[in-house]
Each structure stands twice: as structure tokens, then as C-alpha cells.
Amino acid sequence: EVTIKANLIFANGSTQTAEFKGTFEKATSEAYAYADTLKKDNGEYTVDVADKGYTLNIKFAG
């Protein structure tokens, strides 16, 4: 089991951190699915992958 950390960075400057656990593939998939649910209210997003994929910096356009 691994932990994927998602740093969520919103257009208004606020930030939030979420963690997803499971296999690497499952946790990564859940992180992207979570970002997709936030897209409606926060706009499109870009992802900067860090720490060999264990950290995702997800920035929303607003």
C-alpha cells in the first residue's frame, strides 16, 4: 500500500491537501477522480507530478 499526496491549489490562492491510499494505480486514479469532481466549481486543472508520482500538485484555473 502506498499513499499519494495531492496538493490542491485553487485560483483564489487557498490550498488543501488530500491523501489517497491503496496500490499506486488505485490511489493515483482516486486522486485524479477527486480533482475531476472539483473541476465543476473550480475550473480546469493542471497537474505537476513530483516525488516520482507520489505527490501531485493540482492547480485549478478558477
Rank of each mutant, 00 (worst) to 15 (best):
A27I: 03
G13H: 12
D51L: 06
A50K: 09
T55R: 07
L38R: 07
Y34C: 03
N12Q: 08
F10S: 04
T55F: 08
E25Y: 06
E19G: 04
K52E: 12
G53M: 04
T3Y: 05
I4M: 06
Y54T: 10
N57I: 14
N7E: 13
K59Y: 07
G22K: 01
L38K: 08
A18V: 08
T46W: 06
T46E: 09
Q16G: 13
F60Y: 09
E1C: 03
I58P: 00
A50Q: 05
T23G: 08
F10D: 02
A11M: 07
I4N: 00
F60P: 00
T3G: 05
V47R: 02
K40Q: 11
A31Y: 01
A33G: 07
V47Y: 11
F24T: 08
K39Q: 11
V49D: 06
S14A: 14
T46Y: 06
S29P: 02
N7C: 04
G53F: 03
D41S: 08
G22R: 01
N57A: 09
L56T: 01
Y54L: 07
A35T: 09
D51P: 02
Y54C: 03
T37E: 12
T23L: 12
K59M: 09
A27S: 05
N12C: 03
T23I: 12
A11V: 15
A50G: 10
Y34F: 08
T3K: 07
K39F: 13
Y54P: 01
T55L: 15
Y54Q: 11
G22N: 04
S14E: 12
Y34H: 11
F60K: 00
G53R: 02
K39N: 05
K26Y: 10
K52Q: 09
F10M: 13
Y45P: 02
A11T: 06
T17M: 12
L38C: 04
Q16W: 14
K26S: 05
S29D: 12
N12S: 04
E1V: 15
Q16F: 10
I4F: 02
V2T: 12
K40T: 13
T28A: 06
G43C: 02
F24I: 13
T15W: 14
Q16Y: 10
E30K: 10
D36M: 08
F10I: 04
G13M: 12
A18N: 13
T23N: 07
N57C: 04
T15L: 15
A35V: 14
Y54E: 04
I9K: 11
L38A: 06
E19H: 13
A31R: 00
D48K: 11
D48I: 13
N12T: 08
N42M: 11
Q16P: 02
N57H: 13
E30M: 05
K5D: 03
T3S: 13
F20E: 00
K40F: 10
E44S: 10
S29Q: 14
Q16C: 04
A61G: 05
G13S: 12
Y32A: 03
V2I: 11
K21A: 06
K21C: 04
K26Q: 06
G22F: 02
G62E: 06
Y32S: 03
N12I: 15
A11C: 03
K52W: 07
N7M: 11
A6T: 15
D48M: 09
S14G: 15
F20P: 00
F20Y: 06
K59Q: 12
N57Y: 12
T17A: 08
Y54W: 15
T46C: 04
G43F: 03
G43S: 04
G43Q: 03
Q16E: 06
A11Q: 13
D51F: 03
I4C: 02
K39A: 09
Y34V: 09
A6C: 03
A18D: 09
V49F: 13
D36S: 10
I9C: 04
E44T: 07
K59E: 04
K40C: 03
L38I: 04
T37D: 15
V2W: 07
T23C: 03
L8C: 03
K5Q: 09
G22L: 01
E25V: 13
Y54H: 09
T46S: 04
D41P: 04
G62Q: 11
K52L: 11
A27D: 01
K40L: 09
E44D: 13
K5N: 09
A61M: 09
A18P: 04
A35K: 00
Q16K: 15
V2R: 08
D48Q: 07
T55H: 04
A31H: 02
T28Q: 14
A11L: 11
